[in-house]
């Protein structure tokens, strides 16, 4: 991970937006130096030039100056606003995942990262991604807060139990980079580290093939839906259907019994499995039992992926390794994230 940068002690910069963070950093260093030098010079000049020449002297009084006060209030304010705007622009880039990104699922757990690719490959504490491809991570945790941090990509995000958070990046240089858990998570926090391996397109294909998957998340979800959890007995179309139809609902608005509505997104689907009675869709009875405690976070991710595939979103058939391929689905407003964390 040693840097090949010409600046000493400077970390590798390897994502599409890492240069923006670096630019902001150097802008702030420039401002800091521009403030430090005159102030420190003034302090030294004053303490030498106006040092005590006579014990208990009484120098002439100076009361202050409205002009000076105004100047040194307004200039820092203007400068701080440029810093704010710069930061806001970069933040927006970092935290708004693009629609056409390759999906990776991440589940944090004391003290390891469990990662699953859309094509089914599973990894622990390692994430293989192709270079020059947008990658979006959908993350949650089984226990406490964690934080998925990749310093070389200049991004990180907390992983919060009970909801999904998202992180995206586009690696620009093949290599192996640090992956840290950056939110304190208990005993072995400093052991919750791993690496992000960025491979050339071909190498990534080969890696995918070498780690042949058993089931993709969608397949696993279908298995859970139809067999293991028996969701299909109520939700499948037909005479026995008592639960809401799940075909083509993703990204649409649903109305609840007793008022209120929501856009169907990952968070909504997840919550509907765990707390079905909190959001009963109009026209249905509150008969669905909760699946809290019966499904793991990984199974939830698979179920959500399967239900999304019923709406034609993120079909796992779409090869994620082909960056040229268009976004697989039209209604892919994956940047959504409802406020159900606040229930």
């Amino acid at each position: 991970m040693q840097t090949d940068s010409w600046i000493p002690l400077f970390p590798e910069s390897a994502s599409s937006f890492s240069w923006q963070v670096d630019a902001l950093y150097f802008y702030l260093i420039a401002i800091s130096v521009a403030f430090m030098i005159p102030i420190v010079a003034a302090i030294f000049w004053f303490i030498v030039r106006y040092r005590e020449r006579e014990k208990f002297a009484t120098p002439e009084e100076i009361h202050g100056s409205i002009v000076l006060e105004t100047v040194w209030s307004i200039i820092p304010f203007i400068i701080s606003m440029t810093i704010f705007l710069g930061g806001a622009v970069v933040y927006y880039t970092q935290y708004r995942p693009p629609d056409d990104a390759m999906q990776v699922y991440v589940v944090g757990k004391q003290w390891m990262w469990k990662i699953q690719h859309e094509t089914g490959q599973r990894e622990i504490n390692q994430l293989h991604v192709p270079v020059n491809t947008k990658v979006k991570l959908t993350m949650t945790t089984e226990d406490v807060l964690h934080d998925f941090s990749i310093p070389a990509f200049r991004t990180k995000a907390d992983v919060v139990p009970g909801r999904y958070t998202y992180l995206w990046f586009e690696a620009t240089k093949p290599g192996t980079y640090h992956l840290f858990c950056a939110e304190y998570c208990g005993l072995n926090h400093s052991g919750m580290i791993g690496s992000v391996v960025v491979l050339e397109q071909d190498d990534f294909e080969r890696w995918l093939q070498g780690n042949a998957s058993n089931q993709t998340p969608v397949e696993q979800g279908r298995d859970l839906f139809e067999n293991k959890l028996g969701c299909a007995s109520c939700h499948a179309a037909g005479s026995g259907q008592r639960g809401a139809a799940l075909e083509n609902i993703y990204g649409k608005e649903v109305k609840f019994v007793g008022g209120g509505s929501a856009i169907v997104d990952d968070e909504y689907l997840r919550n509907s499995i765990l707390n079905p009675s909190s959001q009963v869709v109009e026209g249905y009875q509150p008969i669905m039992p909760t699946f809290k405690g019966q499904v793991t976070e990984e199974q939830l991710i698979a179920l959500v992926a399967y239900i999304k595939s019923l709406s034609g979103v993120d079909a796992s058939a779409a090869a994620p390794s082909a960056p040229a391929a268009p976004a697989p689905a039209p209604a892919n407003n994956m940047g959504s994230n409802s406020n159900q964390g606040g229930r």
Binding site: Y95, R96, A157, T165, Y166, I263, D265, N333, G335, S336, N337, S338, N339, G341, G342
Partner: peptide
């Protein structure tokens, strides 16, 4: 914070 987490330009 809570009211702006729903889908929209500012959501994550």
């Amino acid at each position: 914070d809570y009211f702006t987490r729903v889908s929209g330009v500012f959501s994550a």
